[in-house]
Amino acid sequence: MNLEQTDFYTQAILSMAALVGLTSFLMLGQGRLLRLIFVFAVQGFLLTLTTVLAAYSLNNPHLYISALLTLVLKVIFIPWMLRREVLLMNTHRDVQALANKTVVMLGGASLMVFSYYVLHPIVQTTSPVMLNALAVSLSVVLLGMLLMISHRQAVAHVVGFMSIENGLFFAAIVATKGMPMVVELGVAFDVLVAAVLFGIFFLHIRTSIDSLDVDLLNKLNEVDK
């Protein structure tokens, strides 16, 4: 692949993919909740930019709507809600010591390699650019899962959950120029409802265990204690 011969849009998409992947790694290694939320908002913003870029370059006006939805939901509403929650619980000063940061980061890197491996058959049908974009989206999805596994705070779980959605959205925009409009609206609706439900859940978890540390949610178990 010769980068200089590709058009502006393809080059831009590639750099966006790299940046989105980078933000996922930043989140993975982040111990402070407020900074985690900030990086998440940055990822959402990159996603918005990508969508606008795609809408402009491909001349596809309905993508502007989904860009707007992403901006409102992922850059403004969800980060605001999470930030408020963190400040309310007064956990913003806590530094979450990640038990084995090196292992987690190495795991993240191998997930990325794994994504390339899984999606490699796609090269037959398309340019290597698409492989890059799709593999990065898949790795954002997988890194979101790893984030949920490695962090113990409920807030971090929500960030992981939503960053998985980001990865999916990125794939949809880059690979298929956005999903059909009804589907995109439906997905956005689901994300919105999920965000609201998370807010309600924080309230319930706080009142029931007086903390947002999900390790304390361990009553239901198959193993006898």
């Binding site: 998370f198 859940f201 319930h204 978890i205 029931s208 009553k219 239901l220």
Partner: peptide, 13 residues
């Protein structure tokens, strides 16, 4: 109940 909230959280996530 704490158990039901835990179950719902697990279900959701």
């Amino acid at each position: 109940t704490p158990e039901s909230i835990e179950a719902a959280w697990k279900y959701f996530i």
